[in-house]
Amino acid sequence: MFACLALAAPLIPATAHAAPLTAPLLPASGLVLSVQPEMGTLSTTQLNCEPAGGLHRNAEMACDQLLPVEGDFRRLEETGAMCTMELNPTKATLRGKWRSKRIDFQQVFSNPCVLRAYTGKVFDF
């Protein structure tokens, strides 16, 4: 009887070792951006960086611009765009987490075109 059990043992498949569970890759930075022109509608979106994503339509380009300035859109270089002198004060807000620090930036631009000229793709959503 023991001989039968010894022969049957090799026929039982070995149990595969389970791979260790890993947490999903979370973005290093998660931001909520909003644009509020005085004469216009509030627009808001979410931007994640490292890896780029979220609801922002230009997420990869926006993250590429924010990485060298550590998430501080006020340090972005002007794009050189030509804008009219229309007065439509437009508030840009960026809140959330940039890597390990909390950020909360706001700035008012004279109109939406000037906002885009100074912030590139970051507020182009």
Score class of each variant (00 low, 15 high):
residue 19 A to H: 08
residue 19 A to S: 14
residue 19 A to M: 13
residue 20 P to M: 03
residue 20 P to G: 12
residue 21 L to R: 08
residue 21 L to T: 13
residue 21 L to S: 10
residue 21 L to E: 12
residue 21 L to H: 15
residue 22 T to Y: 09
residue 22 T to A: 11
residue 23 A to V: 14
residue 24 P to L: 02
residue 24 P to D: 09
residue 28 A to C: 02
residue 28 A to T: 04
residue 29 S to A: 10
residue 29 S to M: 04
residue 31 L to C: 05
residue 31 L to R: 01
residue 32 V to Q: 11
residue 33 L to Q: 02
residue 33 L to G: 06
residue 35 V to C: 11
residue 36 Q to F: 05
residue 36 Q to A: 04
residue 36 Q to I: 10
residue 36 Q to D: 10
residue 38 E to V: 12
residue 38 E to F: 15
residue 39 M to R: 12
residue 39 M to E: 15
residue 39 M to I: 14
residue 40 G to H: 08
residue 41 T to N: 14
residue 41 T to P: 02
residue 41 T to Q: 12
residue 42 L to Q: 03
residue 42 L to D: 02
residue 44 T to A: 00
residue 44 T to Y: 02
residue 45 T to A: 13
residue 45 T to S: 11
residue 45 T to K: 02
residue 46 Q to D: 07
residue 47 L to F: 06
residue 49 C to T: 04
residue 49 C to W: 01
residue 50 E to I: 09
residue 50 E to Q: 10
residue 50 E to P: 11
residue 52 A to C: 04
residue 53 G to Y: 09
residue 53 G to E: 05
residue 54 G to H: 00
residue 54 G to W: 10
residue 55 L to G: 11
residue 55 L to Q: 11
residue 58 N to C: 01
residue 58 N to L: 07
residue 63 C to I: 06
residue 64 D to S: 10
residue 64 D to T: 00
residue 64 D to A: 06
residue 64 D to P: 06
residue 65 Q to G: 02
residue 65 Q to H: 01
residue 66 L to Y: 05
residue 66 L to Q: 01
residue 66 L to I: 06
residue 66 L to C: 02
residue 68 P to N: 05
residue 69 V to C: 01
residue 69 V to F: 07
residue 69 V to Y: 01
residue 70 E to M: 09
residue 70 E to S: 14
residue 70 E to L: 11
residue 70 E to T: 10
residue 74 R to W: 03
residue 74 R to C: 05
residue 75 R to K: 13
residue 75 R to G: 12
residue 78 E to Y: 00
residue 80 G to N: 01
residue 81 A to Q: 15
residue 81 A to L: 06
residue 82 M to F: 15
residue 82 M to I: 11
residue 82 M to D: 13
residue 83 C to E: 13
residue 84 T to N: 12
residue 84 T to M: 11
residue 84 T to R: 09
residue 85 M to H: 03
residue 85 M to G: 07
residue 85 M to W: 06
residue 85 M to A: 11
residue 86 E to K: 08
residue 86 E to F: 01
residue 87 L to R: 11
residue 88 N to I: 07
residue 89 P to I: 05
residue 89 P to S: 06
residue 91 K to L: 14
residue 91 K to H: 09
residue 91 K to E: 15
residue 91 K to S: 15
residue 92 A to P: 00
